[in-house]
Amino acid sequence: MNEFFASLYELFINFFGHDLGMHLNGYQDGAFGEPHYIWFGLVLMLGTVLMVVLFYYIINHPRFNMWKHWLLMLGATVIIQYIIAYQWVLDHLNTGKICDDLIVNKSDIASFSFVHAFWAFVIFVFVSFVIRWWSKNSSCTPYPL
């Protein structure tokens, strides 16, 4: 599972840096321990799917089913995921969980969070198109079938 998520994030590893990538792969004091990608990946997946399900099946409202409402949910998801990723990695940095051998700064964290938010965007769109068919009020959102 970790490898799967790692492969997703590391498509853009040049964007957020190899050192942060190594940390997220569990690098600590010269060895690789418990990886972090899996947790970011699970939060990414579950959080995003939850937002899609919220829109299509829980809110599922005739007055909240237009493309702009979908866009609002997508935007909220992307922002929430960005904030979660940023705060989470920042917490690693501030609490010394990142190995001293690795050079990670706030700009790397912002870039990683951006990648995380990008995948949230992709997953939101993908899951939307998969599950909208069975939604009572939003099956034609963001556009008709």
């Binding site: 409202h61 005739p62 007055r63 069975w134 009572k136 009020n137 099956s139």
Partner: peptide
């Protein structure tokens, strides 16, 4: 909850269609 008047009507129309 939060569905009345024509909103409720649309909800039933969408359910029927579905």
């Amino acid at each position: 909850f939060k569905k009345d008047n024509f909103t409720l009507f649309d909800d039933h129309l969408n359910a029927s269609d579905r």
